[in-house]
Write a protein that binds this DNA or RNA. Sequence first.
DNA 1: CCTCCTAATGAGTGATTACTCACTTTATTA
DNA 2: TAATAAAGTGAGTAATCACTCATTAGGAGG
Lengths: 219, 219
Amino acid sequence: MKKTEDGTDWLFDEEVNESGDLTEKQKRIVKAAVEMFQEKGFSASSTSEIARRAGVAEGTIFRHYRTKKDLLLAIVTPVMSHLVAPFIVKDLDKVLKTDYEHYEDFLRAIVKNRQTFIRKHLPIVKILIQEIPFHEELRTQFIEHVAKDLFDRFEKVIIHFQKKGELIQIPPSSAIRLSITAILGFFLARYIMVPEREWDDENEIELTVQFILNGLKAQ
Amino acid sequence: MKKTEDGTDWLFDEEVNESGDLTEKQKRIVKAAVEMFQEKGFSASSTSEIARRAGVAEGTIFRHYRTKKDLLLAIVTPVMSHLVAPFIVKDLDKVLKTDYEHYEDFLRAIVKNRQTFIRKHLPIVKILIQEIPFHEELRTQFIEHVAKDLFDRFEKVIIHFQKKGELIQIPPSSAIRLSITAILGFFLARYIMVPEREWDDENEIELTVQFILNGLKAQ
DNA sequence: CCTCCTAATGAGTGATTACTCACTTTATTA
DNA sequence: TAATAAAGTGAGTAATCACTCATTAGGAGG
């Protein structure tokens, strides 16, 4: 199911264990739950209506998921753990040297790669963002396995290109924040705030990348 | 209650009609509701517990607010309408010429000003962000009176400095997106994602402003 | 056909929900 | 002080909540 992550093709998209060992009814439950959670939020979604939408008895939900919250976690955690997947690579330094000569190349690869991922799992990503503040497990898991990993790897990348003299000498944490918010800002505008607008993705990504590069260019 | 907005001191902070004509118990209700909405979200907050926390009978809530949702809106809408207050000024062009010679000055003023606002109303801003997706009235009101206004004024500003040759010639909508997300990114990191960290606000704001300036500088 | 086994069911559970209303207390004005 | 209005109360309401469990359905192996 997973590609070999041998350092060269680590930016591959991977399946987020979906519909693998689930029964037919289970899939319908998950589908209905995702719809409802997105429309009304987790708390405002009742298990009875989820069952109704899935065309399933309410008891069936609780046969597969002990609680309503378990259902949420089953939906949301696999996506979360794959959000930063492209950063989890053993020999980052080697990858940087061989694949990404400039910070520009790195940025472009990340943006393109994460765009396909977000586009694919957008509803669940939305639910995740919505519910993170209210569920301790989600918060800790996010901090431990997403934010920390992301930050650590990103920091290495920044320092790498600072040493090469490409990037301005500011605290890496600030450079990370500025890079990530510019990228997230694009995704936010593109897929959440104004998805109905006709976007020239190629061009908009290019603008964003150039914006970051100029903003962080060594003076 | 409001300062005169005569074009020079339009970046003043204004009171968001709080605690003006409210009774003592009403204030306690609002305070308890804000706490609960922030902790558990709107849907997961029960009116019975809000009443309990406020030290008030449950009926008292419904004397002042017809429904639970009315309570939410009463809390959230005044803050929303003041979010973009500094942009609502009659003669923007004049202000630009007299007060802000460079885009840099404009940016710095906006960031500083909105920081005091957000810091002051952070809990309600958080609730607003959380609940916007689930309440049609909030969404439309946000689009009509916040996003639209903000966008229109910001567009004028961008075009103004593009004409002056300060800013790169890219679509103003893109320049707005990049500017705003960098600023919002700072607020997000500063007050929501990692508020517990010790921030050197002055320095971080300076970095953010310079990042935007370099990113959008005419080549 | 019988025996297992698991998936699926849906009526039933007590708790909780947002909200009402007849009534009491407090404040305002004449 | 008497009259009127406004603020506050809390027991009561029907509806809905997440969840349980005894029962049924259906397929596999013998």
